[in-house]
Design a protein around this nucleic acid. Sequence first.
DNA 1: GAAATTGTATAGAGTTACTATACAATTCAT
DNA 2: ATGAATTGTATAGTAACTCTATACAATTTC
Lengths: 128, 128
Amino acid sequence: MFIVVDENDSRPIYRQVADGISALIAGGELREGAQLPPVRQLAADLGVNLNTIATAYRELQAEGLINVRHGSGAVVASSRAIERADEELRKPLRTALTQLVLAGRARTEIMGMVAEELRALMKGAKRG
Amino acid sequence: MFIVVDENDSRPIYRQVADGISALIAGGELREGAQLPPVRQLAADLGVNLNTIATAYRELQAEGLINVRHGSGAVVASSRAIERADEELRKPLRTALTQLVLAGRARTEIMGMVAEELRALMKGAKRG
DNA sequence: GAAATTGTATAGAGTTACTATACAATTCAT
DNA sequence: ATGAATTGTATAGTAACTCTATACAATTTC
């Protein structure tokens, strides 16, 4: 499971993990029905406590992406998250774009970067 | 000063304020030399403590966007943030795009949304 | 130079993030 | 069936973070 946790990232670890798994689901690396690693295993891999992973799994369950069952583990439930308000989705996008603009990137450069990230993200996604 | 703080936003208030001001600078609503409101005034406007605003200002100063001086106040220093690693800029973009993909938005729809946000963001920016 | 204005420092309360450990549900082996 | 192994869950404690109240200090204004 290819996830990275970054000390210097301001997001809490459980959020970084949840976001990492979200990306794997969005990209099709984890499809519906796929089994997620046990919390203890992923926790050991990343060098964190198992409860931190359990929190990440609960977040993903709340977003409708996975199903967690006591005893048997976590399974990808859907590659579609529960409905969210448009503004909820735009806000983080706007923040990210703001930082790019302030970094001096030109509009075309930013559009290219977005296209590139989208391509990488949706590589092998098979979505309708 | 048109900034909104959102209870349900997971970012701390000082981050929301810093991001809001960043957007105003990126969009040219606040140009180099422009005076920011005193921490007490903005704090009162938003219904928070003055130290929360002071923290936001310190963040913006650390990013190279404003200059804060004891006694005289805060002034926009540049519309260009200090240099940051490419990956640092891509990570939040990737996260935002992931959420859009998981929300079921098509690639073209997402590209359109980005273009729209960029247009709104850079409205009247005059940047070279 | 005194008053007003502006940011800064300190201290405390509440919340959040993370960890260690114990508990409980499910699965697997026999 | 039943005990062991595997898996998630609950509880409790510590540290860090967020926000507030209040006092302090630099600068500007008159």
